[in-house]
Nucleic acid binder design. Structure first.
Length: 491
RNA sequence: CGGGAUGUAGCACAGUCCGGUUAGUGUACCUGCUUUGGGAGCAGGGGGUCGCAGGUUCGAAUCCUGCCAUCCCGACCA
């Protein structure tokens, strides 16, 4: 198992020191759990953004931007929504500072108190629906298919780097529809977009399903999700898509005139994924040598490292390396040629493995003599010699092979760690001693789910969409149950 | 906010129990020479409010009191 993100010591290891660091905001306060995303980490996020953004555009969505601040009154209009988020909100109360004459320190100017407090968005449903009210009059104005790339703040009691930070980057889609069916189709469509992204870009297999009532988004009728399994046997919610019904339309009085000339409330969906996905990427694929990035999301796919003793050797190698780099770039491959003289080849090998570069090409005097190069792949750490005449093709093929291989490896891991429990003793044993996903019958009540959570720390990750209904007995209560649901301990 | 642990150089730690030279090790950093096919070697060098405040003492990183912070486990959660 990879050493990443499993304990304190390892949390601060170099594994993700390249990606992120904790922000040192205050010496003496409750401010915690903020992260600085370093350039290399941000480059990965940009790759994710680009791929997701294209998928959103391809499904008819446009980007827009809404305010960071939400008036408290907007926030409290949807009852279960405000209840769900109330305990984790940052609140703006003042708009000015002043110099204190006595202490000569900068203090909050009490005269500049806001009449109505502003909430720093933990999610944007309220301010967006308040805005949609003005955009929608007729069925001709629908649907509205909008996405926003933004930061949000959730003042969690306990944070965890990448997975649950006080401030995080994400995208949130907010759509408005004329019919319930259309909104539900949108909800499922976006869940599928997320699943496709996770599997074909991140190389992380996911289970698609519905959240139980306990785990549902505050304000949603149904929450769809994708659940992934990390290498330490814990589950991670990787993305959610909510069918909001008419809850927000009613709260913000968003009605449209239908073809029959009748006023009707608008139907809604919202969906989001966050920088948590970077945590998923790290935890799903890393090994003891560091990150393993899927080629489709690696900021740089290939690194070329020259090996030389004399300057003339470097000059000769560099001439070839530049040609190789240009050839690969023509084929759409991103390449870095690292001819720094400040580090030795062995140091560079270790460094690029730590950073997860999918392919490394080493070229030395011996290669120049034999017209070969050494190609190493990150996922298996295999090294092979190839003729210089065939390298370009080899690399292109290798990149798609790596992409496929790391997905298959993660899929195999998930299959090996997915089990079924038919009684509570077996269930507890699996959760406690094996980890991973456990399928078990559930009677469908929140009470049972809560009891199981209290006793085992396992929660229902989702009610999977692709498993058949069949008669069974709840693993906890023994009452009749219709379906096996997916349990796991989760992040 | 409860339970536990920890705070010593950029990072990782030893020293604390049992007070006593100039606070140490690894790594990172700087200089020089030799090196370069898997994180080089040697020599020299810079870097410390020992978390903060108070107390005990001839003398405190070490003992006492208070405070602060961090991490892990819970409650909360993308």
């Amino acid at each position: 198992m990879a050493k990443v993100l499993t304990s304190k010591e390892e949390n601060y290891s170099q594994w993700y020191n390249d990606l992120v660091t904790k922000a040192d905001l205050a010496e003496n306060s409750a401010v915690r759990g903020c992260m600085v995303i370093k350039p290399y980490g941000y480059a990965i996020w940009e790759k994710m953004q680009a791929a997701l953004d294209k998928m959103f555009k391809d499904t008819g969505h446009s980007n827009a931007y809404f305010p960071l601040f939400i008036p408290k009154s907007f926030f409290s209009k949807e009852a279960s929504h405000v209840e769900g988020f109330a305990k984790e909100c940052a609140v703006v109360t003042h708009y000015r500072l002043k110099n204190d004459e006595n202490t000569n320190e900068i203090v909050v100017d009490e005269d500049a108190r806001l009449e109505e407090e502003l909430i720093v968005r933990p999610t944007s449903e309220t301010i967006i629906w308040n805005t949609y009210k003005g955009w929608i009059q007729s069925y001709r104005d629908l649907p509205i298919l909008v996405n926003q790339w933004a930061n949000v703040v959730r003042w969690e009691m306990r944070t965890r780097l990448f997975l649950r930070t006080a401030e995080f980057l994400w995208q949130e889609g907010h759509t408005a529809h004329a019919t319930s069916q259309e909104a539900q189709e949108e909800t499922i469509k976006m869940m599928n977009v997320y699943a496709t992204f996770a599997e074909s870009f991140m190389g992380v297999p996911v289970i698609k399903g519905l959240k139980s009532e306990n785990e549902r988004f505050a304000g949603a009728i149904e929450t769809y999700c994708i659940e992934a399994l990390m290498q330490d046997g814990k589950a991670l919610q990787a993305g959610t898509s909510h069918f909001l019904g008419q809850n927000f339309a009613k709260a913000f009085d968003v009605k449209y005139l239908n073809k029959e000339g009748k006023q009707e409330y608008v139907w809604a969906s919202s969906w989001g994924v966050s920088t948590r996905l970077m945590g998923a990427l790290v935890m799903a694929h890393s090994d003891d040598n560091g990150l393993v990035l899927p080629p489709k999301l690696a900021p740089t796919q290939v690194v070329i490292v020259p090996i030389y003793k004399k300057d003339e050797q470097l000059k000769e190698i560099s001439e070839y390396a530049h040609v190789l780099k240009a050839n690969l770039e023509k084929l759409g491959v991103t390449v870095k040629y690292d001819d720094r003289d400040t580090h030795k080849p062995g140091w560079k090998f270790a460094e690029y493995e730590l950073k997860g570069f999918p392919v490394r090409i080493a070229i030395g005097p011996r290669d120049m003599e034999n017209k070969t190069v050494e190609v190493a792949r990150r996922d298996t750490l295999e090294k092979k010699l190839y003729n210089q005449s065939e390298v370009e093709k080899v690399v292109v093929d290798l990149l798609s092979d790596i992409q496929e291989n790391i997905y298959n490896k993660a899929l195999r891991f998930r299959e090996e760690n997915t089990r079924t429990a038919d009684n509570y003793e077996a269930f507890k044993d699996l959760i406690e001693n094996k980890g991973g996903f456990v399928y078990a019958f559930w009677d469908g009540t929140p009470e049972t789910e809560q009891k199981i959570k209290e006793e085992t720390k396992a929660t229902i990750r989702c009610i999977p969409l692709d498993t058949e209904e069949k008669e069974g007995k709840c693993v906890y209560s023994g009452k009749p149950a219709k379906k096996r649901v997916l349990f796991a301990r989760a992040y």
